[in-house]
């Protein structure tokens, strides 16, 4: 039965992620006073790109062609390892948070290598910036994982979520608040949103993630865009279920699964909307201020660890 949960989760993520991106840009556009395309627009664009001819630059090598597939596949794999609509997934006892975080990294590394293989300046520039952020983000991610694992005595995501379901009071602790704050920064940086990266810019010299995709066209570009949408939804879903696992059921009942899909969808929609609302009032940081933000996230994670170890939760 776990395979049904898995299928539901994959279908949920694949179909839902472009909608979340569409929703976020709809919200931003409306607040800015523009008429906006509806939330289905990213889906139309994906479909359009999948139907277009693919152009490969003659300077690029084989890795350039392989990278989008690897990125998409590793992101898809990560989405089979996170309790998004169910905590009953195949192999769930082996999905350690360190391991799953590694899958996100794997995707970033493949994309960066693909960008370097494009043989142009901008690919390398984007890769260099992305790798700097990855390198500096890694401590905050691991520190947050550490903080979360203390509560559950395990770094298995499913164990952490189960522990929260069992003892919901534990979440009301300073440690949780701190690690939540640290993870929010991680989510923003990982998904390349403001103030770290501006996904809507056309100024190549300022780009981070987009600079790596400049030479891509057709379905490889669609895969990259889709993968970043999936990554955003995964991170939002992960953060909501780590801290608010209500709506996940320890059962493989199909009705309950449907309910979980709806509740998780609502949680992700809510978080995405909040993110979009916050982004409207945000500008992009200068590139060398980003490390300070990430450093802040690390410190929050460190405080969270200390609090988890030495401060008891408010509610037992």
């Amino acid at each position: 039965m776990t395979i049904i949960s898995l299928c539901a989760q994959i279908v949920f993520i694949l179909t839902g992620s472009p909608l979340v991106v569409g929703l976020m840009s709809w919200i931003k556009n409306r607040i800015e006073g523009r008429r906006s395309a509806d939330v289905l627009q990213p889906w139309r664009e994906t479909r359009k790109l999948f139907s277009k001819q693919v152009l490969y630059p003659q300077t690029a090598g084989g890795f350039f062609r392989f990278a989008p597939l690897a990125l998409f596949a590793s992101t898809l794999s990560a989405s089979a390892m996170i309790p998004l609509v169910s905590i009953e997934l195949p192999f769930s006892s082996t999905f350690d948070l360190f391991w799953v975080v590694g899958f996100f990294l794997l995707g970033s590394v493949f994309l960066a290598l693909g960008a370097l293989d494009s043989g142009t300046v901008f690919g390398g520039m984007g890769a260099s910036r992305e790798m700097m952020i990855v390198a500096l983000l890694e401590p905050s991610i691991l520190m947050s994982v550490y903080a979360l694992s203390i509560r559950a005595h395990s770094s298995n995501i499913f164990a952490i979520v189960r522990a929260t379901i069992l003892h919901p009071g534990q979440i009301a602790s300073p440690a949780s608040a701190l690690s939540f704050a640290a993870l929010v920064i991680v989510v923003i940086a990982e998904s390349g949103r403001l103030p770290v990266d501006n996904p809507n810019t056309h100024l190549e010299l300022t780009m981070i993630h987009e600079a790596m995709t400049l030479e891509y066209s057709g379905y490889p570009l669609a895969l990259i865009k889709w993968a970043s949408a999936i990554r955003l939804v995964l991170l939002l879903g992960l953060i909501s279920n780590l801290f608010l696992p209500e709506g996940l059921f320890d059962s493989t009942n199909l009705v309950l699964l449907g309910v979980s899909v709806l509740i998780t969808g609502a949680k992700v929609t809510l978080l995405a909307s909040i993110l979009a609302l916050a982004e409207v009032h945000m500008a992009k940081l200068r590139l060398f201020r980003v490390p300070e933000l990430l450093g802040g996230s690390f410190v929050l994670g460190l405080l969270s660890v200390t609090a988890s170890l030495y401060l008891p939760p408010i509610l037992k």
């Binding site: 800015e32 006073g33 501006n198 809507n200 500008a283």
Partner: peptide, 16 residues
């Protein structure tokens, strides 16, 4: 100038 630092809200208002 606002748009180039990613502050598109101000740019939208300026364009209006």
């Amino acid at each position: 100038l606002a748009n180039d630092v990613g502050f598109s809200l101000a740019n939208a208002q300026a364009l209006v």
